[in-house]
Amino acid sequence: MNLKELIISLSSLMSVTGYESYSTDKLVEIMGKKFDESYVDNIGNHIFVKKCGKENAPRILIDCHFDEIGMMVTGYKKGGFLKVTNVGGVDTRLLPSSEVVIFGKETISGIFATTPESDRRFGDDSLKPIDQLVIDTGYPDDELKELCPLGTPVSYKGEYHLLKNDKLVGKAFDDKACGACAVYGIDAVDSLDLVADVYFVFATREEIGCVGAGPAAYGIDPDYALVMDVTNSWIPEMTGMKWTAIGTGVSIDISPVTNRKLTKMTAKLCEEKGIKYTLRASPGSTGTDANSTGTVREGIPTVLCSLPLRNMHTANELLLLDDAKALADLVSEFIKSKEIAEVFAR
């Protein structure tokens, strides 16, 4: 599987926050023999280990979150409709008429109802909050209740295609595209070249407050960590600087919550190995799993590397394959770097 295929196959898995277990089997199948061990911890993190073969080896944590934003069934409306609430940051601007997949006892498709023209006042562009929207399923009411009990997860329908210049479009690249880069990057390295045992964590519940990464890091107790997430790339609707545009390679975050020295060394690594990168100032909290890993146990030195992404949290997220390739390369170099291991391995 090449990187593009890996991104698509991981991103298209259903992994709405809290329901990642629906895809455990498929995930393990995709991972194949790339790792030596895999397990799911108590809270639901999917953890994959690649051993370096040395005894008492240090441990590197590579964290991406597996969950994607989505919705959850909260009730029913006569006529075959479902009521839902959001799980994570769902943009209601995108919902009317959008297609969704409902993962009940059977997987069925649904469509968010729109405001009928007869109810539309001229020039009205107001958006209803999600609890006032309904999903049309085309099923009889009693059957629907049976098929989709309360709590049934709902996700965007994912369709993947390439636009000009190798720009890949689809749902849930946040953060499974980074996950694909991690897996691809780790797989590209021979075990003998690893400077440590590599723990790749596909973390749970990031979208509702970075819940899974902390417990994962606590359980693994790594020497140092690389957290990878997507970052908002500039699009014309945004005001201000054209920051972290796609095409600028890996975005390395400099933040008070991450380790400054590890960050600098990672940037230097990119420099040496010819990996395209940009530095990004994140003066506050990063809003990623890096917030959690840094403060676990005695404090885990963490670096945050991001993949620029347009249209985040929509069914049409857009990334540039070159950026993803750069991120995968960085992962490979990071787990081979003796220089970093010398400083940060305990």
Partner: peptide, 11 residues
Amino acid sequence: ASMQRAGAGAH
């Protein structure tokens, strides 16, 4: 919430 995320996490 706190039981879920404390330490190494719980069901």
